[in-house]
Design a protein around this nucleic acid. Structure first.
Lengths: 364, 364
DNA sequence: CTGAAAGCGCTAACAT
DNA sequence: ATGTTAGCGCTTTCAG
């Protein structure tokens, strides 16, 4: 293992150095008592002065703040959290971070959190309920003041969330919500967009357009698929008996890739596909490249995606683009309402930020 | 504002509901004392039992664990952190999250953190030193047990990091390091790759290849640029007086885009460019598309990038691809050595994980 | 306006 | 093997 690396600087040898025993003992960080001692005032006064309490004289405040800066004092967040019963932290639970949508959403969330002086604890469920459950449990007991979650693909119960609700920790869904749990959700108009995608392909004269879904339980996929199916039904396409408007690709990335190749290369296969998520779109492109299937001549492609590179793909990709940043931002804003206003009720809040279809060469 | 939204479910009204005063008071989470009380044993025993201490009988342990599960007890992390003086949390400071490199790096970091039972606090500096400084200060006083940082583009001092070092919080650089601060760093072979890029273009017969840098101070850019220049020098290209092998694009995204357009469209402009970072590559493609410059016929392009879509771009993009996941993973592994082994010295640790040049159509 | 003191929930040293 | 107790560093009544 080690020989993969090429250390370029010799490792400094410190064992047996001059000052044994003082290395690595976490250096005594100055605490509020010491700060008070130096100033010859009480800790209570210091504490209040630092929090800019009105019951402290301007003069004292100044002295305290200056000395704090001088001694590089910063309050211990754990002590403070323990006492105040809040953490100034929110938990963000995502299926993955490698999807551009989630990167953008994190930016939106971060922009709000930063302005509120909150910290962001990020968790990845890797799209597995089993992980999500552990993570949610970890967020309990005051570790976070609120949770923003995009549910995993195979979550089928909300018991874990209910648990947290017991503790009165506000939860907001963003993008991927869960029907069986009533709390605020910030999502996009998935059904409508599925319909738009279907309509767009029908208008292009497609006869066997197929929606490639990754989950039959995930609301975003279900909604998109249903909207799509409705468009197909309304179109009056005379279906051959073998034609299925919605197909499922499940399993590992490799498995999905194989399924896609099978689907698009078969006799009487689709003449157009809708990728339900970004990953599927890339795999369709890769598959077409590998199999020599021409987009859009032999296969038209639309993808639900926020891919920045959509306009410069070969060919450029028609997308239904979610307002990812805004979704993250809005979800965070609502969460903070729930955190700050003790009597703000998140139940029933449902905000829908619309996505847009951007036509490019892949459906020309 | 509100009318952009379409609430689909009526908002449940709870004001003045049956049980006033108990709503939204954070419900009394059961704590260790209550758990002990219920079991008729001491808190010390409960604490030890839950931590699987050897000085507790198997029988007692079982009882405790079962009751804890039943009452849904989870220890308060702040109390525990305060007492134990650790947080089981590491801070990750990134310039941004929208670059694919950092998404992948986070995955690598997360994979290690998860296996160690650590939490991940993520901070975005937006590539500004002023933010970075605040963030680093925030990480002090025990909020995190260690820091993974990819330095911002305009950081020119390490005072803020030194401050943390006083507290003996281990710090590991990944990808973007800072020369003036001695700690572990996990980077890639930037100079060598710059050289490879230059060599590759020279071999293709290019006469005026240009390296597009985004910073003259950021080590990764400097190294890449220097390697590139060396390749050009060695190539024996007879430079016209106007030819500059390294050009800088700085400012906002829009400003950079304009600069790029100017550079590639000018008389005797470059016949090839190397994009120092992912963002520049996309902008070069966009610019070429807009200006009708053909890649690779009129302009060859190489990019330092981990873009997944590189193979399906138009044309497919020759990249120098960093092992982003491994860099994150390795950095986290080293950090944990620093956290766990009190006498492990991070100074002088320097691990270089090589990138690879992958030739595609943009330099054909 | 300032200070003394209680205690948030937990862990660990020190009994028993 | 189990229990008692003293804090970790801070905030917050409550008194002065």
């Amino acid at each position: 293992m080690r020989n993969r690396f090429r250390p370029q600087a010799a490792k400094t040898i410190v064992h047996g150095s001059k000052n044994p025993g003082q290395r690595r003992e976490r250096m005594k960080k100055v605490n509020i008592r010491e700060l008070a001692q130096v100033l010859n005032i009480s800790v209570a006064t210091v504490s209040k002065a630092l929090r800019d309490s009105h019951e402290i004289s301007a003069e004292t405040k100044k002295k305290v703040v200056e000395m704090a800066a001088l001694l590089n004092y910063t309050p211990n967040p754990h002590a403070s959290s323990l006492r105040k019963k809040n953490s100034k932290t929110i938990g963000v639970i995502l299926p993955k971070v490698a999807d551009n949508f989630f990167s953008l959403a994190i930016n939106g969330i971060q922009s709000i959190a930063e302005s509120k002086g909150y910290h962001l604890l990020i968790y990845l469920s890797h799209d597995k309920f089993i992980n999500e459950k552990l993570i949610v449990a970890d967020c309990g007991s005051g570790r976070v003041d609120g949770i923003l979650i995009s549910i995993s693909g195979d979550t089928e119960t909300a018991e874990h969330l209910r648990q947290l609700n017991e503790e009165n920790i506000p939860i907001v869904f963003f993008d991927r919500d869960f029907d069986g749990f009533d709390t605020a959700r910030v999502i996009t108009n998935d059904r409508e967009c599925g319909y738009m995608a279907g309509k767009h392909l029908v208008e292009k004269g497609m006869q066997r357009p197929v929606f490639l879904s990754i989950s039959s339980s995930l609301p975003i996929c279900k909604e998109r698929a249903e909207g799509f199916e409705q468009a197909i039904r309304e179109s009056g396409i005379v279906a051959s008996p073998a034609y299925q408007p919605v197909l499922y690709c499940e399993g590992s990335d490799e498995a999905i890739f194989e399924q896609i190749k099978t689907i698009i290369s078969q006799q009487d296969g689709p003449d157009a596909v809708v990728a339900s998520v970004e990953k599927i779109a890339l795999q369709v492109y890769m598959a077409c490249q590998e199999l020599g299937i021409h987009i859009p001549a032999a296969l038209k492609v639309i993808a639900f995606s926020t891919l920045e590179t959509a306009p410069i793909l070969n060919p450029s990709l028609t997308t239904i683009t979610q307002p990812a940043f805004e979704i993250g931002k809005t979800a965070a804003e609502i969460l903070f309402k729930g955190i700050e206003k003790k009597n703000f009720d998140l139940k029933g809040e449902k905000i829908i930020l619309p996505s847009r279809l951007i036509e490019r060469a892949s459906t020309q």
